[in-house]
């Protein structure tokens, strides 16, 4: 799986993830990609080591006198149960299963026209995340971007002016890109898309309805 991925996350994104400075929606994108991509996971873990080095050298702040005893009391109080995070869905990596509440069949899609459907995922408002369903052979209307938009393929594939993107591939779009992604014929395409700004559609009709759709 992992070696078929051609389009990866950037070092900048992975650094912000390792440092814990991404908005929730972007965190979800990175966690989802890392679930499929050993190469980016290794890079992210190396960038976490930078954090470990800084922690070692950050200049200690004295703890209160009874801090150790208080911590042992917390330990005695018991630990939150941690469940192993293994894949339970063929299409959705586990971080997405957590947000959707199940497999693809549990996604509550809403039509956004031309057969394309989306489902907004509940994240903090700093950025938004949604699942996109593009029927086999169909296109997403031609559009530009106001901020950064990351789109990762979960099923099927799409092509646009940049390249072809298949399962695990991430397309990074910003203000400079105007594109019209078209799904491969043969299989419906499902993607995770995150953006830090609403999309700007080139046709005025989609723009009118944009606020209601929250994309």
């Amino acid at each position: 799986m992992t070696d078929t991925i051609k389009h990866h996350l950037t070092d900048t994104l992975l650094t912000a993830y390792a440092a814990g400075n991404l908005p929730e929606a972007f965190n979800l994108m990175v966690a989802t990609h890392l679930s499929l991509c050993d190469s980016c996971r290794a890079q992210a873990e190396a960038l976490e080591a930078v954090g470990g080095c800084l922690l070692t050298d950050c200049g200690p702040q004295a703890m209160t006198g009874d801090a150790l005893a208080a911590t042992f009391a917390r330990i005695e109080a018991g630990s939150p149960v941690t469940t192993p995070r293994k894949r339970t869905s063929a299409v959705l990596p586990q971080p997405l299963v957590d947000y959707v509440g199940g497999d693809v069949s549990t996604i509550r899609w809403k039509s956004i026209g031309m057969g394309v459907r989306q489902a907004i995922l509940p994240t903090s408002s700093a950025a938004s995340a949604r699942l996109l369903f593009i029927p086999a052979g169909a296109a997403v209307p031609d559009h530009g971007h106001r901020g950064i938009e990351l789109t990762m393929v979960l099923q099927g594939a799409f092509s646009d002016e940049v390249d072809r993107f298949a399962r695990g591939d991430v397309e990074i779009a910003d203000e400079g890109l105007d594109h019209m992604p078209v799904a491969d014929p043969g299989e419906d395409c499902i993607c995770l898309a995150v953006t830090d700004a609403p999309l700007r559609f080139n046709s005025w009709i989609p723009r009118l309805v944009q606020p209601f759709l929250r994309i």
């Binding site: 912000a16 190469s39 980016c40 990074i172």
Partner: peptide, 13 residues
């Protein structure tokens, strides 16, 4: 660091 400062660069396989 604000996410606005995230620039697009290519990851290294």
């Amino acid at each position: 660091l604000s996410h606005r400062e995230i620039a697009a660069q290519t990851g290294l396989p």
